[in-house]
Design a protein around this nucleic acid. Structure first.
Lengths: 195, 195
DNA sequence: TTAAAAACATACTAATTAGTATGTTTTCTA
DNA sequence: TAGAAAACATACTAATTAGTATGTTTTTAA
């Protein structure tokens, strides 16, 4: 990776926590250059404006880590209940980047930016649709393996589960991490009804 | 209601749609005085700053309408499944104020403001805890009436259902209103497993 | 009816914002 | 190794922001 690419990625990686904690619009370019230790000239050499940088954060930082945490655990599945639950438990309880106070960066950006900016809406839609597709595939594999009911509507179940995730990331901001535990217990009950 | 009270309520009612569509921080005082047709002097006579006004919107506009839409339908319940589903369907599908593109004002404010401002976090927590309590009471009444299983954890189920609501309000911003329909179908399935 | 207080109006300020103009330094390539 | 291009640095600008100072008008109560 060239030095310039390093600078670029460093900006994106250091800007993400700011956007995560303060929101995208409330994070100023001056905030970003202060914490990245990059001058304004350098930043605007790499990104033509703030939105280009914001979109790059989603595409090149959030997207890959989401693939790892949320999508990969669902591939080549035998027992959807198990894989979905474990993926959910891990991302909610075990990831050190996340803080229940600040929720999930992707959920936050959907909430804040999707209604205001089509480019943000598009890239975030792509992100979630890939997660949803992985979950649908996972459930369909379970149907074939007879670990979930053959007559369940995988799309519908996936939407329901993804809603739960987005929602507990939201509620967790006011109810704290203990609400994650409660949510996970009932998610387990729900998943058990799918077979 | 005195003329001053009228002005005050008029500001709050007209400011809510702005906050709903653009976000709280992105809605400027100048935006508000432009659409309310109230001068800055009048606005700052009624509210000592922007946050006081924001909190007043929650307390005096959002809170009452939330009581009507979300809490009241759950009181004096016999069959929680029915009441919960109908309340959810009505608020998601039939309310003209809401637009799937913009989600739910309360959910939006939790997302944006709870991590940044304790006063907002407190009043929004109160709001949601009342909704949650109504749902818990509703489920417990169902236990007594033998319409839901006696051994289910009402708190846990309430958290799970409320997560679903917050989450579909979030996902709906990118997936559109059709996702509400999918969500509701699976919510019905889930509710049926509670008896 | 009058005076005091409440309600509202206008013009301003200081801070912050995204973005640019115009440089200098570093890196790469012929 | 020279020169061109890439990468970075600094100082500025115009717009927008929440909030205030200082008024005028309207309402209320004696």
């Amino acid at each position: 990776m060239s030095k310039a690419d390093n600078t670029r990625m460093s900006i994106l990686k250091k800007a993400l926590p700011l956007v995560y904690k303060n929101g995208y619009q409330a994070t100023s370019i001056d905030d970003i250059i202060a914490t990245t230790q990059v001058t304004k000239g350098a930043l605007y050499y790499h990104f033509k404006n703030k939105d280009e940088m914001g979109l790059a954060i989603i595409k090149y930082v959030m997207y890959p880590s989401m693939q790892n945490m949320l999508v990969k655990p669902l591939l080549d599945s035998q027992s959807p209940q198990k894989e979905i639950y474990q993926m959910m438990e891990k991302v909610l309880m075990d990831d050190n980047f996340f803080d229940s106070k600040y929720g999930c960066p992707a959920v936050n950006l959907i909430d804040e930016m999707a209604p205001l900016n089509k480019d943000f809406a598009n890239v975030l839609t792509k992100l979630f649709k890939e997660w949803k597709k992985a979950m649908v595939d996972c459930l369909n594999a379970g149907k074939k393996a007879n670990t979930v009911k053959a007559d369940l509507n995988s799309e519908q179940v996936a939407i329901f589960i993804l809603s739960g995730y987005s929602g507990i990331r939201n509620l967790g901001k006011i109810l704290g991490k203990s609400s994650y535990t409660e949510y996970l217990k009932e998610l387990k009950n729900y998943l058990m009804t799918l077979n």
